[in-house]
């Protein structure tokens, strides 16, 4: 039986998802490649966004990929950590802002 759910080697097999549905797989990877091209945002900025999102969705493949990508692009560890705090702030804030809903309910029901 497999001992872990994730294997780092699987990241390199990402492209194989096209084998079971070539049309959708090809469309996805074409889209993916286009998204990360230089545009109104630089490829460097997009890499930092990807790193922050990777931590938000807690995808170990993406964290591995975009930490390495960031190093290759000369992104510093300070920049990486700041990007993560933005993700953490939004994620934490998303929980906390629901506190308003809780407060509304309590205020309505409580005497």
């Amino acid at each position: 039986m497999q001992k872990t759910y994730y294997d780092p080697a699987d990241l390199k097999k990402f492209g194989k998802i096209s084998e079971w549905n070539e049309e959708l797989g090809a469309k996805f990877f074409e889209y993916y490649g286009k998204v990360f091209e230089e545009g109104a945002l630089s490829a460097r900025e997009k890499s930092l966004i990807a790193l922050a999102v990777a931590h938000t969705i807690q995808c170990p493949y993406c964290i591995d990929a975009y930490t390495g990508d960031g190093l290759q692009r000369g992104i510093t560890k300070e920049e990486m950590m700041e990007a993560l705090h933005v993700a953490a702030a939004i994620r934490g804030g998303a929980s906390l802002v629901h506190g308003v809903q809780m407060m509304n309910k309590v205020n309505k029901l409580d005497m």
């Binding site: 230089e38 990508d69 190093l71 290759q72 692009r73 000369g74």
Partner: peptide, 20 residues
Amino acid sequence: VYNPSGAFLPGDQASMEKDF
């Protein structure tokens, strides 16, 4: 000359040049 400061490969030369 840019050499990566660790166990990773250099990124795209043109992009790095722009950032430098």
